[in-house]
Design a protein around this nucleic acid. Sequence first.
DNA 1: CCGCTTTATGCAACTAGTTGCATAAGCGTG
DNA 2: CACGCTTATGCAACTAGTTGCATAAAGCGG
Lengths: 191, 191
Amino acid sequence: MSLPHAILTALLEKPSSGLELTRRFDKSIGYFWSATHQQIYRELGKLEAQGLIRALPSEQPARGQKKAYEVLPAGRDELARWTAASQDPKPHRDVMLLRLRAAAVVGTAGLEADLRRHRELHERQLAKYLEIEQRDFPPGKDGPEDRLRHLVLRAGIDLETFWTQWLDHALSEFARLPDAGEPRRPGVREA
Amino acid sequence: MSLPHAILTALLEKPSSGLELTRRFDKSIGYFWSATHQQIYRELGKLEAQGLIRALPSEQPARGQKKAYEVLPAGRDELARWTAASQDPKPHRDVMLLRLRAAAVVGTAGLEADLRRHRELHERQLAKYLEIEQRDFPPGKDGPEDRLRHLVLRAGIDLETFWTQWLDHALSEFARLPDAGEPRRPGVREA
DNA sequence: CCGCTTTATGCAACTAGTTGCATAAGCGTG
DNA sequence: CACGCTTATGCAACTAGTTGCATAAAGCGG
């Protein structure tokens, strides 16, 4: 149940329409919580029904018209409650690690290319984050809110650095492996 | 669509019953792909229907009886295909980072304790992994399959190390923050 | 041999997230 | 002004994962 709270946070930072939120989820918030526009519209409807947000009255509310939302006091309270509440970390799900594990059984054929590709993707993401850091957190900007937001961006930067390095390590291990093929094919029992 | 392949991998490593698989998912495989017993039973049924695995005939198949499965050649082929196929990395979802971001808007009250708790959890997980590394990968064990599996375990170890250190950093930032409270409460518009 | 716990399997309902498509207004251009 | 493109909102159906509970056999203790 994190999406509504991600939306509340985004709306508190700046009241927005559904599409604006979608765009912002492709940027800052989306670095650690992605969402499609359908999810967002649905959730906006629910949040409005619960009385946590409301549509800004200004613009005429018609289909194909922008409809911006702002957070109501009840929404802010709910977000504060959720933020303070203890939550267990969820176990990671990483498909690439699963594939490596599978490769130990069925062979590494084809995997190395994708490892390399992922390495590039992580490196590119890292570059993007570093650019944002330059832009959004110049030396002077270090109020409490800035520090917290910078901390979060730092997590993104450090994680991408981590994966880039880990994939380098994995690739160097691959180079030491006895050629991409099937390590063995044990007796396959037939019916 | 990774769960069926996680199960195929586990079954290739060792034919097992549903419950045995569940237990193994709480250990090695589950480090990066968790699953409940219900998910596993359901998926076993599907995999059998698709002809990728079959129940070992030996034991009598009754309710409350163990029913072990083994992978059929078609299952192995499917796993090899899946392993080699290129896949895009999925964006991370991290609730704690979301909460930190929210805290920048609604205040950090209550968060520090949970940061500390998470740090402990990650440290404990790290200790568990290191123990497994000691047990399963002694200096001699370095065949191709061992190297790959070790690589995956290493990712777990390095990730837990990463989060432990990052949380330490976050906590040290918190210590430097102007006391856990609400950094500001901007003009709340009422209806 | 009766009840209790453990082991093992499974169904049904629910929540969260994804995919594909529909609708409608605004805007530019021939 | 008719056509197509972009912006914006939204429904419906699907997939994946979670939660709660049901069932059945085996083992065990009195």
